[in-house]
Design a protein around this nucleic acid. Sequence first.
DNA 1: AGCTCTTATGAATCATTGA
DNA 2: GTCAATGATTCATAAGAGC
Lengths: 283, 283
Amino acid sequence: MTTTSQVLQGDCAEVLQSFPDQSVDLIVTSPPYADRRKNTYGGIAPEKYVEWFLPRSAEFLRVLKPSGSFILNIKEKAENGERHTYVLELILALRQQGWLWTEEYIWHKRNCYPGKWPNRFRDAWERCLHFTKERKFTMNQEAVMVPMGDWAGSRLKSLSKNDVVRYDSQVGSGFGKNIANWLERPMAYPTNVLHLATECGNKNHSAAFPQNLPEWFIKLLSNPGDTVLDPFVGSGTTLKAAHELGRNGIGIDLSAEYCDMAREAAGKQLALMEEPAIYGQKP
Amino acid sequence: MTTTSQVLQGDCAEVLQSFPDQSVDLIVTSPPYADRRKNTYGGIAPEKYVEWFLPRSAEFLRVLKPSGSFILNIKEKAENGERHTYVLELILALRQQGWLWTEEYIWHKRNCYPGKWPNRFRDAWERCLHFTKERKFTMNQEAVMVPMGDWAGSRLKSLSKNDVVRYDSQVGSGFGKNIANWLERPMAYPTNVLHLATECGNKNHSAAFPQNLPEWFIKLLSNPGDTVLDPFVGSGTTLKAAHELGRNGIGIDLSAEYCDMAREAAGKQLALMEEPAIYGQKP
DNA sequence: AGCTCTTATGAATCATTGA
DNA sequence: GTCAATGATTCATAAGAGC
């Protein structure tokens, strides 16, 4: 099976208008978060975030197939000592728009950004909001079952400090046999809490969820050969994940720089397909 | 220092009216969750949940000291394939009422209830919403620093299967030294994600967050000798935690049975103090 | 004692059945 | 139809039995 990846430059509110209805199987994106300071695409004021988002999500709703899903990775900022409410308001507004708020997954960031404040601890989680058009939708639960390594890891986690010390002194005394037993247990279904480390490589961009995150949702909520859209593609993590999993990818970004990075991330074959080949130009 | 615990039977909306303003340092509670079916106290319809809650939280706001905090443990249900929005609406309504939505902590339930459905994984987290009256409030971050044993455990959890296998084969090759290094690291501040197992003992009640949960917030958000209120005290976990940490406890519950359980949980001295001693009766 | 295995069960959710 | 009750699903713990 051959798959394609495309990166289109522009505002997704406009670019998507050239897409036919029900042409995308899955949308996974991490939109620019609200920010009071900047006046650019990535700096929408919190009070205007819902208003800014809705015309775009209307296009998402139109181009998504009935069996499709929309995964929105987002987290409200704290400002002036308080959490903003624009994400809550966005969820309510999206339901008004016709989306079903199917689930809220928690991405637990194991190695979150360090910091210390008098009234707040480090923020170690983000929302992954799952919206659908219908109550029945594509979901391949077996594709994301937790492999045995993770399970053994969680068993190791439950060891007390004494166990660790004993392990250290009585090397190979039979403890290893136990581990072997654990490794033979069957796979288990995950929960709605995802434990993923943030990427710590020397990337050029600041945002960027770890590739594990879009991978997990792509495996779960689409089939090989399907089309995955990221309307705020940024550095292209979603496209890279889609490509590696045998899905067609479409990325959109306002920034030409990000579009270049996304093309790079998704593979060299993109150089030949910068213009929309499947969906045609705007009329 | 001597501390007292009281359990008062009745609806907290009425019972709290006899409390003076600004007489409580911390409120930690897990209210009855919305339920469409039952018509009892524990079965408020989701559509009426906010309306039901607001008069009660108005009393919470009145009796709480300016430096105090209100911790609300809650999670919306899924019904008909979709998450309810009443918790989101409640957050917005509480802000309208004058509360500051300071933070949202995630309680990650490591051993959540089993189950399998075509469109949903097991629900492994609940919200712990943190509301305050002022931007500056009592917060003892040092009181909840993560001890070394836990930290080492979480490092072990991150080991990959290969690491375990390597450990198993190359016994004592230097891997143990790494563990020793981990064990000598200083204490670390936690994040806003709490990893606690649900209690699994043979308890008589269904509700009940684990005692670790109120303990953590009581240590963080109050001082010894302070007064902690749980207006939906249930089986008394909050009172037990408060008592063991040297805080005065006040519990309220509509159910006489739960009041008895709460008195039992907080200690035998309660038998002498079932009636309000400090705050007096309603006029 | 200590390790291993078994068993019970917990703020769940959905589809189906029946009133 | 609408609403209430029941069965099926299935994992992390603790408690207890057995060796």
